[in-house]
């Protein structure tokens, strides 16, 4: 997984603006007008991002492998 790049996104139809992601990883996510968004859409792969995404109570934070598009989380 080293060297991989991941694509982050937040599903607006699921996000409730709880801010769990932004408070857990302030350098990766922010909340604006009640919705969370990634600070940068494509970032270096790091395991912590999976933990943060899976902390979302609404499963609104998506992590995909950049290029292949493989969905890492949430489970479908």
């Amino acid at each position: 997984m080293a060297g991989d790049r991941w694509r982050l996104s937040v599903a607006a139809d699921r996000c409730v603006g709880s801010g769990v992601c932004a408070a857990s990883a302030p350098h990766r996510f922010f909340v604006e007008d009640g919705l969370a968004r990634p600070e940068h859409e494509v970032v270096d792969a790091e395991d912590e991002l999976i933990d943060v995404a899976e902390s979302c109570p609404m499963e609104a934070v998506f992590v995909r492998v950049e290029g292949s598009g493989e969905l890492l989380t949430p489970p479908e």
């Binding site: 709880s18 801010g19 769990v20 932004a22 902390s55 109570p57």
Partner: peptide, 9 residues
């Protein structure tokens, strides 16, 4: 709100 937003909401 924030990191401790209710887990069981």
């Amino acid at each position: 709100a924030g990191a401790h937003f209710c887990l069981g909401s």
